[in-house]
Design a protein around this nucleic acid. Structure first.
Lengths: 349, 349
DNA sequence: CATCCAAATGTTAGCGCTGTCATTTGTCAA
DNA sequence: TTGACAAATGACAGCGCTAACATTTGGATG
């Protein structure tokens, strides 16, 4: 039956037979070339090319008890924020013998736990997980994991292993301060999804307005729904139906901000003069909207890249010099908050 | 050394030992319950739960010569179009014992070929690939693949196996017709990336304007760069620098269209009266822009869903009743092309 | 009660690779 | 030349599981 199952499949033994060496020598020639004499190595490489041998990752995984797969857990596939992170991860992993397998937790802690169990049962080379709000069980799983683990998207006090992110709280605080400093007083907060990171942005906002004596609960609108541009329109409509006394809006992400802008245009509300507007993430379109929208730039691709690099370093046995990285953020002040000159950037030190 | 390598790992044999049956019976109880007597099955399930046994997919793959992984090849991770497709795939696969592994071809036919080889060496349960423009070698690999294959994103004459998509040519043709029917004469085309699908959209546009005797090469602007909102702004600026004689613009995707809208707003060009505007894909924001932008709705999530369903059916041994599916498209006529009533939809039959 | 047959369970032999140890070969100093 | 030792290569077992075949069990049947 062999001919049937592995039709055409070339194995290590096949290569060894042709090259007149044992299978294990071929294995070594490919994995640890320095252990095989140069002459033999060359002959083996020739035979490999001739026969078109391709290593079987499955067999390798079973025999060596580890895979070349880096598991990535993100809460959403469609959210462009995570798409950027993924791109960063890919940019690093693509040049390596490793591959990426990712799971979609859909913002559910339980789903995350389930996926974590599945991923761990596959002996990943490394694990990249989003956020710092895992369930207790998940944290335990991660702590016991016999592979490097990187938590991304935010920073926090107790990393399971390594960490790359920034403080959403600080970022939101600074953005709110920017509005306050710009002379706005009645500053609203629009929040969608309200996952842990959004919550912390809300905290930053709250702190800033409270410190300035500007806190007003009626200016906060949040929803568990996912953020969309349309939701931004709706939230503005809702707010204006309640009160006309609004001077600025801090949106917990750029989709909402764009929706607010469109709705303002429709209602002939001048941005930034009637209402100031600030988003979060600094998606590409923010800079070219009309007017350009102030936003908090976050380094999403770099986050992915750094996380992947950390995993690869550790897998290679090297020590990671900086296992907890705070990537900070950058307030991109633009016309929508009366900051006309695009050049006026304040990278948080 | 066993204690070291498989520390804490519970195997089928362990379960069998406790339940007083052979390993293979446990295996069957889990995979083909109907082959095991109800009494025994229950005892086995109890022991499985008690011991916390988790099947090892790697060992299973090696023994059975197949994995539970569905490989997905897409050209971009960040393009929201593919993010939607992925979401569709996930929605189906999540409820099954299968998992998804995806590869990013970055619009490169060679990279696609390379990834295909890697994926195939892992004995995938199925393969979903984007587009119909594979290299000859890739087509050969796919044809020989011993698993179901679905080509997605577009339809074409010679499916390798199964296919879910729509005609980009027809979609673009209809959108252009819509502009012509709306009374626009000088109709420009803005195209970014210019991958095969974009090329076919350009063909549809060209055909439509030629048929109406409105073809003018100087109204076509294309670039190999990836599409962004900013690029839309630039393209409009470029075009207007050359000629003021433009009545409408068909953008090969919504990012560009949004950029054009912003640039029009800045230049005080009235949409739709000075310039008509039509996008492609109908991203969520199109409907709430100011004014709402006409676009060609494509069924991206459904495409992913259908493709995944097809794979699962075939893996289950069922026959797929309709192996080539044309999902069509829907012209969402909105204010940006003088079509005020949102209700005026024309689903292409 | 022997016979037959399907259903239920077990035995055996790998899947392709690598870890571990054993053996061979080559090199150099004494 | 000899021994000592490192470098190079090989033999073997086994990772955890399942396909294929073998055997047992439990009824139904005449």
């Amino acid at each position: 039956m062999k001919s049937d199952r592995s039709a055409g499949k070339v194995t290590l033994a096949d290569v060894g037979r042709v090259a007149n060496v044992s299978a294990i020598t071929v294995s070594r020639a490919l994995r640890k070339p320095e252990m095989v004499s140069p002459k033999l190595r060359q002959r083996i490489e020739e035979v490999v090319a001739e026969l078109g041998y391709v290593p079987d990752p499955v067999a390798r995984a079973l025999a060596s008890d580890r895979t070349d797969v880096i598991g990535v857990l993100i809460p959403s596939v469609t959210n462009s924020v995570f798409a950027d992170v993924l791109r960063g991860i890919y940019s690093v992993v693509e040049g390596s013998p490793f591959s990426v397998q990712f799971g979609n937790t859909r913002y559910s802690v339980l789903e995350e736990e389930r996926l974590l169990r599945i991923f761990l049962s596959q002996r990943p080379a490394g694990l990249i997980v989003s956020g710092i709000d895992q369930s207790e069980a998940s944290t335990a799983l991660l702590t016991q994991a016999r592979c490097p683990v990187v938590q991304i998207m935010e920073t926090g006090p107790a990393p399971v292993d390594m960490m790359v992110g920034f403080s959403h709280r600080d970022a939101a605080h600074d953005a709110t301060r920017h509005l306050i400093d710009g002379g706005y007083r009645r500053i609203a907060f629009f929040g969608a999804r309200m996952d842990p990171r959004t919550q912390r942005r809300l905290e930053g906002y709250t702190q800033a307005v409270k410190d300035a004596g500007l806190f007003d609960e009626s200016l906060m609108i949040t929803t568990p729904r996912a953020s969309t541009v349309e939701l931004g329109c709706q939230m503005l409509s809702d707010l204006l139906a309640r009160t006309q006394d609004v001077e600025a809006i801090f949106c917990n992400n750029d989709d909402l901000a764009l929706g607010v802008l469109f709705e303002c245009q429709r209602r002939r509300i001048a941005v930034p003069d009637d209402i100031g507007l600030c988003g979060f993430n600094d998606l590409e379109m923010m800079a070219v909207a009309n007017p350009p929208i102030t936003s908090v730039r976050t380094f999403r691709q770099e986050m992915g890249r750094r996380a992947a690099e950390m995993v690869l370093m550790r897998v290679a046995g090297e020590e990671v010099p900086e296992p907890v990285v705070d990537l900070r953020y950058e307030l991109m002040a633009r016309q929508s908050t009366r900051a006309c000159e695009e050049g006026r950037r304040r990278r948080v030190p």
